[in-house]
Design a protein around this nucleic acid. Sequence first.
DNA 1: TATGAATGAGTATTCATTCAT
DNA 2: TATGAATGAATACTCATTCAT
Lengths: 216, 216, 216, 216
Amino acid sequence: MPATTHRTAAARTRRPDERPEEILEAALTVFAERGYRPATMEAIAREAGITKGTIYLYFENKEELFVSMVREKLRELAALLPPVAYEPGMDFAKILKEAGQKYLEVMMTPRAAQLMSLMIGQYNQVPGLRSLYLEEVIPRGNMELARLLELGQQVGLVRPLDTVIAARSLFGMFFIFVLTQEVFGAKAVTPMSPEMIADTVASIWLEGVLERGNPS
Amino acid sequence: MPATTHRTAAARTRRPDERPEEILEAALTVFAERGYRPATMEAIAREAGITKGTIYLYFENKEELFVSMVREKLRELAALLPPVAYEPGMDFAKILKEAGQKYLEVMMTPRAAQLMSLMIGQYNQVPGLRSLYLEEVIPRGNMELARLLELGQQVGLVRPLDTVIAARSLFGMFFIFVLTQEVFGAKAVTPMSPEMIADTVASIWLEGVLERGNPS
Amino acid sequence: MPATTHRTAAARTRRPDERPEEILEAALTVFAERGYRPATMEAIAREAGITKGTIYLYFENKEELFVSMVREKLRELAALLPPVAYEPGMDFAKILKEAGQKYLEVMMTPRAAQLMSLMIGQYNQVPGLRSLYLEEVIPRGNMELARLLELGQQVGLVRPLDTVIAARSLFGMFFIFVLTQEVFGAKAVTPMSPEMIADTVASIWLEGVLERGNPS
Amino acid sequence: MPATTHRTAAARTRRPDERPEEILEAALTVFAERGYRPATMEAIAREAGITKGTIYLYFENKEELFVSMVREKLRELAALLPPVAYEPGMDFAKILKEAGQKYLEVMMTPRAAQLMSLMIGQYNQVPGLRSLYLEEVIPRGNMELARLLELGQQVGLVRPLDTVIAARSLFGMFFIFVLTQEVFGAKAVTPMSPEMIADTVASIWLEGVLERGNPS
DNA sequence: TATGAATGAGTATTCATTCAT
DNA sequence: TATGAATGAATACTCATTCAT
């Protein structure tokens, strides 16, 4: 029957409204730094300026904290990306380049890249991530563009090809740079400006996708 | 006691030369199934049909085992890919499609995809992986194609664009399908044949990269 | 803002005087269900319809709550048992049987049995229980009967034997049924009616204790 | 990726055959001293002269260790009790007194009493204990005696009464002394010799059970 | 070489207790 | 009085690594 005595914590501040957000932020930092397993709840708490036990007031366990963090941070990233709206008469190529530029600007940052890396690494170990990807990432990032391409095909602007594959290809072209430059640290070896990447990638994809006769 | 008892001959059959290989094979299986941290030396040993201690006769520790496994399996995969040789007069498009097809054939398998996933997830936690990637993957997979493009530019076949970016883009186009279809399990949701992917991707990239006047 | 909002009147109804009692009641329920250690202050509070912190307004800590609960509930049980009064000329056997019946009626209930079980299990871990037993249980339950027996011996009704041992034996005869039937759940395997038990036990003990010549 | 270095343990002795027994012995000591929950695996290991991890080589978890310990120690106690054999012509009373004496001799020891106390306290928290009690304790300790009584009834030696209740009563008479004297520490307050207890208890029970006409 | 018993550092999680409001 | 957010000590259990055989 232990009678534990506690010191009077100086900073026993109550901020129930902001806590979850702060914890998620700290979680991303620590998970990104060490990886899912090596990241300790203790370290996350310290990073958030609280103590271990407090995390458990807001999250069931480490796994739920991880999934919540990924969901929240994905949403924050998604919120930074402007919706790609296309209407007849607009400059397709320009829209695409600008969208690509914006995408790289957001994704080619250490934080975003680390988030990707964490997701990929834990994808098959953490059940909650699957639905996150299938329900939030695919529909938004992929299907929208595919539908845009179908539209283009109907007006003869886009070559006849599988639009889902084409759309995902573009995503892959961008993604590989996020992965190599940021996650794999290749930017120290082969530095490339996001502008240059966006320009080149967009032009290759556009030329490859548009109908011959139509100047991009 | 005239009757000596022997263990079965089979149990005594030792193949010391094949041990490391068997261990690496078992390691890939178990690492892929559980991820780096949750994979236990015990489980790897069991998978290899030996006991824990024996692994340490061949590998310094878990990390070295992991890096050795990745290196070995990457080499095995690389060995399956035929070198892309191009000589003037050859059908550039056909070569590319066939190479892409072969690439997907090799990479769009659970094992290869799991290897990728493991690499990405551990990349920043396991020092040895960095050099592996920078020294083995980039030069072979990327620089070769970039040089090929430069050649194409010199003879006016390829548009003037950053060849390293273009080359890596192609890799990304393929890689995204390995990642999504195999690692993320999207193939259950949006099934696509490797042939269709290779064809579509190759044609987009080629059209996007080749000079206008030159029919692919 | 002219319209003041009130919480429901019921929610504000506070019965400070009944609080400790309610908490003790909840404590017995939860302690009995889970055991001393696994029972959490949180669960006890919830059971009592209050919050954790409130318990500490009435009890120093978990241990004191436990001891207080045991003391209170023992008293409540004791209050249910009528005092065994004997005066010359009364039917000794009948008194005993009725007292035994009453005792079993009170003790052979899940709640009483759980209380016993808790006491026994924590006896040597919780200092306060010792004095409770030595000062409240022994004198009342045991010594009274022993004195009664001495009286019987003086008038030649009871055989010459150690009265304390004889008295405690009777208690043990009853107790073993409380323990086995209620605590150990043997009543599901070997069901016995309290009446039958009381009758049989009382008759054995009486026959064993009374002087030969005296018909019970 | 922590690389833990271990000191060379001086006493890394391998004794797989004796380990389980040693651990069970240590477990009884520590469980008895502190109770189930407060007893730590660390303390049990230290008591056994080994380290925590080693316990887990032999027992699944704390609960299994506890149940295994109770089972083993109950068996050891049971082995100390000679079987009560009765054949016509033997002195029933003498047999009973001697058996009771032996029982108390074995059970009225701190270790045995602590084991009882542990069992009672954990009975409803630890599933494995239920079957232990129902399958091992009841049949051996109770049913044998009940059958003996039935035999006595058939030859007119024993009064007509419920033999199961009578048998269990005797057990209770003894058990209450184990409980009060050893577990509750009443022996410091009301010391009684086991011989005196056995004699008194046996004589009361016998007189109460035997047919009037038959001198015990 | 191979074994597998032993080690012990490391960690997620729980929960009694405190205290600002 | 009452709340409930915050604390942090405590602990079962895991598993990479060692080493006597």
